[in-house]
Amino acid sequence: MLRESSKLERIPVDLEAVTSGLVTHGDLNIEGALVDFAQAALGDNIEKIAIARANVVTQLGEDAMIDAAAVIANFQRMVRIADGTGIPLDLPVAMITAGMRSRLGIDEFSSAANTPETGFFKRLIGAILTPFLPVLFKEMSKRK
């Protein structure tokens, strides 16, 4: 979703920042502030959270900071549902993200064991479909 929304919105987001926490391209100030906020909010250091929060307000405004806080809160829930029930990655997502998961090191997480390995043909189909995803998603958005 990050990759596709980044293309559709023409916001060049650094995918590597998801796993590394370091924003090296894209809008360093905005994305750096968001990544720092996510990292701080998952910890216990109140001062760090306050600094990160203030930085997001400076970069994007208060409403955006509140929406960011809500998203961070939301995914603290979703990860535990996934990990607590042992669900596998949905097959279409597994197919189109196989290469990226491997590159970003996501396949190394313990909970990857809940998803069967994506075989060669599924990876191939995923790779063939990937360039067309923005078109498919644009069509989906028109149906709204």
């Binding site: 929304s5 980044s6 987001v13 920042a17 994305e31 998952l42 939301n74 990990d83 990655l89």
Partner: peptide
Amino acid sequence: GRAISRAHIELLAGRVSALSECFY
């Protein structure tokens, strides 16, 4: 209709998931 872009929403989602070592 949020005050942040979808790409930034997904950046936050991805970072929280990665910090939580969640594969899903």
